[in-house]
Simulated scan of single mutants.
Amino acid sequence: MKKRIGQLKNFAKKMKQELFVIYLSYKDDRTPWYAKAFAICVVAYAFSPIDLIPDFIPVLGYLDDLILVPLGISLALKLIPPQVIKEKRQIAGELKKVSKRKNWFIGILFIFIWILVAVWVGNMVIAILN
């Protein structure tokens, strides 16, 4: 069971990475207009809170996320020229490394801000009680 969950997590990470590659490819001038149109629809649908089948419907609600999004991603990747995909995968990999460092920095910054707010609120409460 843990192996299956690990496989699903890896698949989800790969799909997220491929979605970013499609987005980057959409901006490239070498990508044909029909591939751009399809790519932006796939990216928009993947990030849209609105689904064809709402998520609150048992089982069917998640089927569109599990079937339509990966199907759209694979079709979009086939429509985009291979050299563009290869180049954008490299760029996406480099951006991923940079974003991990930024995520840590932003996380630490938010923790610091929350600590400052907690100290400020604590000082206000102490001042009111005195």
Rank of each mutant, 00 (worst) to 15 (best):
L77V: 02
I85C: 05
L77D: 03
A44Q: 11
V119H: 08
A92I: 11
C41A: 15
P49A: 09
I53Q: 06
P70R: 07
K16Q: 15
I73E: 10
I53N: 03
Y23E: 14
Y34C: 00
D51I: 06
F110T: 03
S25P: 07
K88E: 14
L66K: 00
P82C: 01
G93I: 08
A39M: 11
G6R: 15
K88G: 02
I108L: 15
L8Y: 10
V117W: 08
D29E: 14
N10E: 15
V42Y: 10
R30L: 12
I126Y: 04
Q83I: 01
E87I: 05
A76Y: 04
L129T: 02
K86N: 08
N10A: 15
K78Y: 05
A37Q: 12
K27F: 07
L109H: 09
L116C: 09
A127M: 09
F47V: 04
L71D: 08
L116Y: 06
W114C: 05
W33F: 09
G107R: 13
A92L: 10
G122T: 01
N103S: 13
I22L: 10
P82L: 09
N130S: 12
I22V: 01
P54E: 12
T31D: 09
V119T: 08
W120I: 03
Y26R: 01
Y23Q: 13
S74W: 12
W33S: 01
I80N: 02
I57H: 04
A44C: 11
R101Q: 13
A44F: 15
K97D: 13
K9V: 15
L52D: 08
V98S: 07
I53Y: 02
I113L: 15
F20H: 09
K78S: 07
K9C: 09
A35L: 10
M15Q: 15
F38R: 03
L63P: 03
S99C: 06
G93R: 13
